[in-house]
Structures are given as C-alpha cells and as structure tokens.
Design a protein around this nucleic acid. Structure first.
Lengths: 205, 205
DNA sequence: TGTACGCTCAAACGCGCGTTTGAACGACGG
DNA sequence: CCGTCGTTCAAACGCGCGTTTGAGCGTACA
C-alpha cells in the first residue's frame, strides 16, 4: 500500500487531535496508534517515547508559526509609523492562519492552550527553550512603541493578554459560534475582537 | 486523635494542590491520599469517585467566591451612580482575596486555569450548570451601563477578562512579587492593574 | 453493658498504561 | 539468489491506576 502520508505523519496528526481532545495524559498511545492506523510499537520506534512524541507535535507546528510571527513583526516594525495594532496583529494573525488553513490546525490551537496550563517541567522547558524568545521579541517591540509605560505594568498587561488568548482559544467561555457563521469567519471574528480588546487594554491610562 | 482538619478537608486540600501541580489525570488518588495522610479508600468512601472529588474541589471554593461576587455586585449597583470600575472591582476583588488570603488559594487558581483547558464534558457541564449564571449577572450589569456595546462583543470581552484573571492569578506569567512588597500589597497592586486593564479593554472603541 | 454506626484500614481486584522484544516482511544492491 | 536494513507486527512485560472488599476500630446511645 502507498498511503499519502507516512507512518510518522499519521501518528503526529492523530496525536495532535487526541491530545487536544483528552489531554497529554488522557490520550493513550493505544488510542493514538489506533486512530492513525499504525502498530502500537511504531510510536516508540519512530519517536522513542511518548514524551518525545509530545515535543514533536509542537515542533511540527511551532517552527513555522514562529517564523511567520517574526516575519510579520519585522514587517510591522519596518512600517513608517508602526502601530500597536500592527504589532498585536503580527502576533495573532499567523496563529489564525495556522488555526484555520491547515488540516488539524484548530486541534493544535487547543493543544497549545493545554500546554499553557501544564506545569510539567519537561514540556515547559522544551517550549521555553525553543520558542520563548518570540514572546520576548514582541514585548521589546511594544516597549519601544510605548516608552512611557513602565516595565512592570507592561509585564502585567502581557500576562493578562496571554491569559485572555489561552482562554479564548480553549473555547470555554460564553461565546459560541453562531449557527450561520463558518468556522473560518468565527475565528476571524474572534481574532479581531481580541486585537481590539488587547490594544485597548495595553493603552489603559 | 482530634486533628484540626477532617479527613474530607485534608483530602480536598491535598487534591487541590496535586491537581494544580500535575493535572486531574496526572495526580493519582494514591498521591493524594498519601499527601493528605489518609487511607487510599477514604476518597471513595467520602466522595464516591475521583470524578466527584474533582467536582467537590471546585465546589468548596466556588460557592463562597460566587456569593462574595454577587454581594459585591449588588453593592456596586446600589450606589447612586455605578461605574464600570466598581462592577469590575466586584468581580475581581473576591477572586484576588481567594487567591491570596486562604491557604491553597493560589493552587486553586491554577486548578481553575486547568479546567479552562479541559474539554472533558462532565467537568465543564458541572461548572457551567452551577456557576454559569454569575458571569451572566455581571454581563447584564455591564450591559446596562454600556447600552451602546453590542451583546456579542461584550461576551467576547468578558471571556477575555475571565481568562486573563485566572491565568494572571495562577502565577503562570512573568510577574513575580518583588522582595520588598508584602503579599497584601502585591494583591492590591495586581487588582489595581487588572481593573485598569479590563476597564480599558471593555471600553475599547 | 451491648450493639449499632460512622469511619479507617490493609489487601486485593481487573484493567489499561508505556515500553520492550524478537520474529516476519519487503525492497534493494552485490 | 542471498543478505542487509528499515520498517511493521503480535505478544508480552511490569507497573500503577481507580475501585471494592470485609474486617476492625472507637464512640454514643439504649
């Protein structure tokens, strides 16, 4: 048989979907391999361990997301007169694209929200080591744009924003997608609302 | 022996702490009962099941939090001229008191943040059924004060605010308490920063 | 004093977990 | 044609899980 996707890819996709739905501990390798239609032992053969599989689920998506975010940030800073909206947009828009363009992108966003709540040392270290500098870059860009805002207040507000984003992405709250609106429109709408809210919050007197 | 805390209370406190640290699936009843210094079977005797223990961990805190929030909301609305700040304060202040005043309050905030990432049906249903009306009450109060803001935008922003509060209070973020500042001062400072941020976000153009 | 009751205890239950094993498979180069 | 190597396979490993059991404990009330 010549399936379109390799065993590794099928495991990653199935893992992404099941981690989103049941959590990292809640989804077992037996569920994952069954969904991917591969043998149980294939996970340990290709990825070494479940922990490393989790890391690779993130790596597959975050490498590209990070690049797009930093490109967008550079573009925003290169404008004649960079605005706060443009910088926040540079942060949110690539996530939106990832969430809606690719198969399983929405699932990955939910996985990301889960990672946020995870206090587990190894996953946090992996994410912080590999992708932490992105947040720092955005913080620096905002600081440059708002020199009058003292650093502590800025950090508070970025914390608030990160929390708000994680919560919004987890689809936990009151807002449900209206029946007449597509997934794509719903996400676009959410991103727009989020940028407006975050911009105004950052600019608080 | 007459210990200060009952078996039930000790189980709830240990569970809260371990759920915060390792997640609902990640923390086992054997860990919980060991930390609480009670017999393994005590959980099923007093709570029936692990799932119900999880619910009771939430109930213990949220019943009081809800009451305090609604009392504060009523007081804010009773003022001659209610302000947005006063209503948000009524929402935030009880949460901050819970997060900092009580033993294990910070742990509970982390548990709450985990619940947001959880897509598990039964927990979400439990929380929504029992405490969903609180957010609705605040939404109504704010709507009254800002009739020009359409309902969907308001709901989005309240979702953002709830998420921001949970994450900020659960010590995930960048802001740590400075050495020279007391817990009480830190809490007041955080509340102030948060209300400023949330007010501005709600008032976004 | 006796017994009923709320609670605690050590031990065990079956189950599903992550991981390991060693054999089988199939394409490919010598 | 045989041997090699990357991959897949069914089966098993030991372990820790949530839950159940039934005996034992102490207190309180008749």
């Amino acid at each position: 048989m010549h399936p379109h996707f390799s065993t590794k890819e099928r495991i990653l996709s199935a893992a992404e979907e099941l981690f989103a739905r049941h959590g990292f501990q809640g989804a077992s390798l037996r569920q994952v391999t069954a969904a991917a239609n591969v043998n149980l032992a294939a996970v340990n053969y290709h990825f070494g361990s479940k922990d490393n599989l989790i890391n690779e689920v993130f790596r597959r998506r975050l490498d590209e997301l990070t690049e797009r975010r930093l490109d967008a940030l550079k573009a925003a800073k290169g404008q004649a007169k960079p605005t706060l909206d443009a910088i926040l947009e540079a942060f949110v828009e690539p996530a939106l694209t990832l969430a809606s363009d690719k198969i399983g992108g929405a699932a990955f966003m939910r996985v990301l929200a889960r990672a946020y709540a995870e206090h587990d040392q190894s996953l946090r270290k992996f994410l912080s080591d590999n992708y932490g500098y992105v947040l720092k870059s955005f913080a620096a860009a905002i600081q440059e744009l708002m020199p009058e805002l003292d650093k502590e207040a800025l950090y508070w507000r970025l914390d608030f924003i990160a929390g708000a984003l994680a919560y919004a992405m987890s689809e936990f709250g009151m807002v449900k997608r209206p029946a007449g609106r597509s997934e794509e429109e719903h996400r676009r709408h959410a991103a727009h609302e989020f940028v407006r809210f975050a911009t105004a919050g950052l600019r608080a007197p």
